[in-house]
């Protein structure tokens, strides 16, 4: 059982790492602000989500598990808002030089 859970953790966390990689590559390689933003937020929420998911079986107690879920939910909320705001900011031309 524990082995299975460990395997799950490894798979999920590795998946999370992959999405972080994808996010970074997207941030660095995509041609313009909005596509970069798209890549960034999608990838990075999924990345953190998978890592949180993978860590859940390893939690020492239920409070930590709840905190993990809360962290993920907060990043979802914050990340979504932030990308909206950054997009708005970029669209208004606030970022152009």
């Amino acid at each position: 059982m524990s082995l299975l859970l460990d395997l799950f953790t490894i798979v999920a966390v590795s998946g999370g790492l992959f999405f972080f990689l994808a996010g970074t590559v997207g941030l660095l390689r995509f041609p313009d602000t909005l596509t970069r933003l798209h890549a960034l937020t999608k990838a990075d929420n999924l990345g953190l989500g998978l890592i949180v998911l993978g860590l859940l079986p390893q939690c020492p107690d239920i409070v930590s598990a709840l905190k993990l879920v809360a962290i993920w939910a907060l990043v979802q909320l914050g990340g979504a808002t932030a990308s909206q705001l950054i997009a708005e900011f970029a669209r208004r031309g606030g970022g152009e030089r």
């Binding site: 907060l74 909320l77 914050g78 979504a80 808002t81 909206q84 705001l85 708005e88 208004r92």
Partner: peptide
């Protein structure tokens, strides 16, 4: 106030503070 009123920001400012 932020420059342009934004629905998302208002949403965030309603949801986040209680938490």
């Amino acid at each position: 106030r932020a420059a342009v009123p934004s629905g998302t920001l208002t949403f965030l400012a309603r949801v986040l503070p209680p938490i």
